[in-house]
């Protein structure tokens, strides 16, 4: 469905895209995961035919994003980073406007958005500007969907939205994907990675890795331990001082410690006890996407 080859794009001094290449299959839910400034938005704009790459190529369904932009624009559903709604129009007016502009009607494609729009219906006379973040996001999705696109490009649809609304949003994406719509979505939240079929981890204009979430986790090269003790703040520094510890970061209520083969849990516990820590708990854990991202992004930084 989407084929990108060696996409490069500069903005003044910064390389927003440094040779991005990947493929997305029809019907896939593909996530691009990375922090602000990774180049996600630039990539989405290139794919949405809004920006020309300096070099490289990209095709969607065989159509070139640079040359065939007019034909492509009919087939894409694009939701830019900021919810691009008219704040002074009501929920209903927004949807109606975008439907008409894309040459569709709400009635014809209602089935597609019904699931989402039903939640907005009680507020349909309310101006979009007066909706909460979660509701705006749902309305923007409806607007992007209303012309029944074959490919949905969603640029950071969940940024700044609370966890509950985020969860609901991903449930909706899952259902849409189930109806055969190919979805390309970006997010800065690593915990959303597991909800995609495949993901690309992105930083500094490059993809660090592209794989199924499980595949990325399986490639994690180190041993990873969750460490807890009665006094958490001093623990971080002590762990980083220990030879054999590759990185150590706080993860919720424990610290994730990556070690090389030489350091076992027994030795680690002895070491921490010698530093005066009490009620030490050390358990082997499976890495999450966030562990993998940090390892790929800057190995050794967490010392």
């Amino acid at each position: 469905m989407v084929v990108a080859r060696e996409l490069r794009r500069r903005y003044g001094e910064t390389d927003a895209l440094r040779g991005i290449g990947f493929e997305v299959g029809r019907g896939e839910l593909f996530g691009i995961i990375g922090p602000d400034g990774a180049g996600k938005t630039t990539l989405f704009r290139v794919l949405a035919t809004l920006l020309l790459a300096d070099s490289g190529s990209a095709t969607i369904d065989g159509l070139d994003v640079a040359r065939d932009y007019a034909a492509l624009r009919r087939r894409l559903g694009y939701m830019p980073g900021r919810f691009s709604l008219y704040q002074d129009l009501t929920v209903e007016e927004n949807l109606e406007f975008f439907a008409t502009v894309f040459g569709a009607t709400i009635e014809a494609n209602y089935a597609l958005v019904a699931d989402i729009y039903r939640q907005l219906e009680p507020f349909k006379k309310r101006r979009a500007g007066a909706l909460s973040g979660g509701m705006k996001q749902k309305l923007a999705l409806c607007c992007a969907l209303i012309h029944k696109p074959e490919l949905l490009l969603l640029d950071e649809p969940t940024t700044g939205v609370d966890p509950v609304s985020r969860k609901e949003f991903w449930d909706m994406l899952g259902r849409l994907n189930g109806q055969g719509i190919t979805i390309l979505v970006s997010t800065p939240y690593m915990d959303e990675a597991g909800l995609c079929d495949r993901i690309a981890l992105m930083q500094g204009g490059s993809f660090l890795d592209v794989d199924r979430p499980a595949g990325i986790v399986a490639k994690y090269p180190h041993a990873l331990w969750a460490v807890r003790a009665s006094r958490m703040s001093g623990l971080l520094g002590d762990l980083r001082d220990k030879a054999g510890v590759l990185s150590c970061f706080a993860f919720g209520d424990s610290h994730h410690v990556a070690t090389d083969g030489s350091l076992g849990p027994a030795e680690l516990e002895r070491y921490l006890a010698s530093r005066g820590h009490e009620s030490i708990e050390i358990g082997r854990i499976e890495p999450g996407i966030e562990d993998c991202f940090m390892d790929l992004a800057g190995a050794g930084e967490g010392r």
């Binding site: 949405a48 809004l50 007019a70 694009y78 939701m79 830019p80 975008f98 502009v101 607007c143």
Partner: peptide, 8 residues
Amino acid sequence: EVLLVSPL
């Protein structure tokens, strides 16, 4: 951005 990607 959205208007530009529309067929308009």
